[in-house]
């Protein structure tokens, strides 16, 4: 059994949560003051997920880069790999906002999409 300390970010309260795990299974959550805290702890303790936001190189345009994000959260542990992949990508200007640059990014089910137009 392992114990993980987390700070809940579901609301501004910032409850200090303690999660007891057996392998990848959550045994118990304590310290939360509402059910959202428990929900947060259960996913966060097993596999924290975040939206990745970064830049992709633009070729043949005025802008050097365009901002991109994953259209849904991806596992935080994949971030180093994701950044390595992002560095290999490029798009040709002009690019519209919401353009999918890579589908099923790193097999996460998330798409990498532009968050602004690039010229």
């Amino acid at each position: 059994m392992t114990e993980k300390k987390l700070v809940c970010v579901s609301c501004p309260m910032g409850c200090e949560l303690t999660v007891v795990l057996e392998g990848k299974k959550v045994v118990s959550v304590s310290g939360n003051r509402c059910p959202r805290g428990e929900e947060y702890a259960r996913s966060e303790a097993v596999e924290p997920r975040r939206v990745l936001m970064t830049l992709v190189r633009v070729e043949g345009g005025r802008d050097r880069v365009v901002s991109v994000k994953t259209d849904r959260p991806i596992p935080l542990r994949l971030f180093p790999k994701a950044m390595a992949r992002v560095r290999e990508l490029s798009v040709r200007a002009p690019v519209a906002i919401g353009t999918v640059i890579e589908e099923n990014f790193l097999s996460t089910g998330a798409n990498l999409v532009t968050t602004r137009p690039a010229r």
Binding site: V51, M53, T54, L55, S67, K69, I97, T115, R116
Partner: peptide, 17 residues
């Protein structure tokens, strides 16, 4: 370029741009 915008106004989480 980070998300966290628009939860009140658009009921979804958007990036600044």
């Amino acid at each position: 370029i980070h998300p966290g915008f628009g939860l009140h106004r658009y009921r979804e989480e958007l990036t600044g741009p």
